[in-house]
Simulated scan of single mutants.
Amino acid sequence: MSMYKLTYFKDGAVGEPSRYLLSYCGIKFEDVRLTMEEWPKHKSNMPMGQLPILEIDNKTYHQSRAIARFIAKKGNLYGSDEFEAMEIDATVDSMEDIRRVMGEYYWEQNPVFKAKLKETALQKLPFYLDKFEAQVKNNDGYFINGKVMIDYMSNYRLSWPDFMWAAYSERISFILTRDVNQDHPELKKLVEKIRALSKIKAYIEKRSKIQ
């Protein structure tokens, strides 16, 4: 059996979708969480000087969405054909767009620039949320009409973006200090469904003990 090790920072952000996916797919992995103080001594050893990385049998892979896409394919969460896969990629890229905008605002240290970035982020966020809300509503509660997956006795049409939004919205909610999905009931219900899945619930419970 292959040995998996995912390395990222203690916060969720771009490493969390892969943690969700690995957990849901039943792939055992070593969950390495670095602190900001530890990061400088590891940075030079990273393929592109960034995290996350995924090590499989001591071979290192990088780029967060490439890693998540690989895991999604292994778990049949990447669509039933090339058209569905393209829809998934487009949805994931849109999620990344708004996550990046929110992240740039959050990490900016210059107060003048930070205020401008915050204004831009808060202007853009409702547009993305409304689009995502409509997409989920039009797809009967999921981002994409994917293959039927089974979690104990319930059937779900799950795909990679469902897990990604559950992870990303958690981070965005942290930045906003409120639930980003609170005014978007379809998104809120989807995130609750993802977090209630047995393997995701078990991961979140375990995560709370190691953070």
Rank of each mutant, 00 (worst) to 15 (best):
I204V: 14
I53W: 05
S44I: 06
Y24I: 12
F83E: 00
F70S: 01
K131P: 05
Y152F: 10
K188W: 03
K73H: 08
F163G: 14
W165K: 13
V112C: 06
P111N: 05
I210L: 13
E37A: 00
L117H: 06
N181L: 11
A115D: 06
K209C: 01
E119R: 00
S2D: 09
K199D: 11
G15A: 14
K118W: 09
S80E: 01
H184G: 04
A166M: 12
M46I: 09
F174C: 11
P126T: 13
L187S: 07
L34S: 11
T35L: 04
K28I: 08
W39K: 01
Q123W: 02
E55L: 05
Y24H: 11
G26C: 07
F174Q: 14
V112R: 06
L176S: 03
I88H: 00
D89F: 01
T177E: 14
G146E: 01
E119F: 05
A13G: 07
L122M: 15
V101C: 00
L117R: 13
A72W: 03
E30G: 08
K73D: 03
N139D: 04
E108G: 09
I53R: 00
P17F: 01
R157S: 03
T91R: 03
Y106S: 02
S44Y: 02
P47Q: 10
Q109A: 09
F143S: 04
Y4W: 11
K188S: 15
K74E: 13
W165T: 12
L21I: 09
K124Y: 05
L187E: 01
L54G: 04
L54S: 08
F174P: 06
I204W: 02
A121K: 03
E108M: 14
H62E: 02
Y128I: 12
S44D: 12
L51E: 10
S44H: 07
K199H: 12
L77C: 08
Y4C: 14
D183G: 07
F132W: 12
F70V: 02
M86K: 04
W165C: 12
P185R: 11
S173C: 13
D183T: 08
N76I: 03
L34N: 09
E133K: 11
K59N: 11
L22T: 08
A90F: 08
E119P: 04
E30K: 15
K74P: 07
K59I: 06
K209Q: 06
K199G: 10
M164I: 14
H42C: 10
Y128W: 12
A85Q: 08
Y152V: 14
K209G: 04
R178E: 14
F127W: 11
S198R: 15
P47E: 07
F143A: 00
H184E: 03
S173W: 11
I172S: 00
S2E: 14
A166Q: 13
E205A: 15
I53N: 00
E108I: 09
L77F: 07
I194K: 08
L129R: 05
V136N: 06
G75D: 03
P161H: 04
Q50W: 04
V32K: 15
E84I: 01
L6D: 10
N45Q: 12
